[in-house]
Design a protein around this nucleic acid. Structure first.
Lengths: 198, 198
DNA sequence: GTCTATATTCCGATAGAC
DNA sequence: GTCTATCGGAATATAGAC
């Protein structure tokens, strides 16, 4: 969470209560279906107060997505290490983040991106500039292959997240993270550093 | 995206026009956001007529999903053949269906399942009973491993479909199908018949 | 800073005329 | 079969009183 400089509006925790309720609502219903009224009710405030703080539903969504996780400090921990273990470390970190409270924002972004174009763009840019590029930059592979390798990794990891947290297909939905790490890591490792048939 | 089929001479099949408009609308906006009024407008009919034909929005969705593809006759074509080529044939069939006009219904179901619980259940049951079980029944592997193998296959294939047709992450979104078949087939083959680390 | 009241728009569904 | 008219409800957002 970024430090709060400058003006602190209202009671200190009212704003955080709204953001928390917003993340939960967006995660459970997606951007369009989540309503400011319901978010305000959960946070115990008036709907008009949400507008007062955040201006619009779009800005509320952005504010709710901003806090939870910072790839800039997580990714370096997985690219540092032996090259053959990068797939395993990436899958383990990925599942860990989604299983943590911070994962709520991920589910919210994922659900929203499915039926709302501007949140889909948000997800694309997050994946490309915050995750994939940071990982791929540290691999010594043909630069021409990087985009394909990156989107293949994304397809497997996002597919995993969708099945585990949105569609909830068993046994993936309830399996221990390490079980999934063991079986999926080889796939991600091959997409990252393996031979890609042309 | 006007998907107006022109009027048939002598037999204006308005019912099919409605179903076609419905599939497109559900594919582009998901179940909740797609409106009967907009579907009726696209089909060139009155909104009340849609209710007259289909009774409710739920039933309209079911009718729109029902037509397009029948796994019962497609799957046998991929389980018949050498065991080591099942992954490749499955990925090729999967991508082919999604790239065809029938894929519109798939995108509709996928988008809807992300923010609507009963369509999510529809997707789960379709995957399990219509696709995965038909494929896995013909493999000679430990029955206890079938659910995990099946959901792993689903996670990779659905992730691929999400990236190609919903989030539209490049280069997966525009790559030739055979390019993706070549790189993803080994993954699916391993999930189906390979050794799964315990 | 907080909330009441409201403007505006859109939704699914129904009743009933032709 | 097809459409006009409408009911009942929920949404975002704004204006303005305390």
């Amino acid at each position: 969470m970024a430090r709060r400089t400058g003006r602190r509006p209202g009671k200190p925790d009212t704003r955080e209560a709204i953001l928390d309720a917003a993340r939960t609502a967006f995660a459970e219903r997606g951007f369009d279906a989540a309503s400011i009224r319901a978010i305000a009710a959960t946070a115990g405030v008036d709907p008009a107060l949400v507008h007062h703080y955040f201006g619009s539903k779009d800005q509320l969504f952005l504010a709710a997505m901003n806090a939870p996780v910072n790839p800039g400090e997580l990714i370096p921990r997985i690219v540092a290490g032996d090259r053959d273990g990068i797939g395993e470390r990436l899958v383990r970190l990925f599942l860990g983040v989604w299983d943590s409270p911070a994962g709520t924002a991920g589910v919210a972004l994922l659900r929203s991106a499915m039926s709302n174009e501007w949140t889909a763009r948000l997800l694309r840019e997050f994946l490309v500039t915050q995750v994939l590029r940071r990982v791929l930059d540290h691999l010594d592979v043909d630069p021409a292959e990087l985009p394909l390798r990156g989107s293949l990794v994304a397809s497997q990891l996002i597919g995993l997240a969708v099945m585990r947290h949105v569609v909830r297909l068993e046994p993936i939905a309830s399996a221990p993270a390490e079980t999934l790490v063991a079986v999926v890591a080889p796939t991600v490792q091959r997409y990252l550093t393996g031979d890609l048939p042309t």
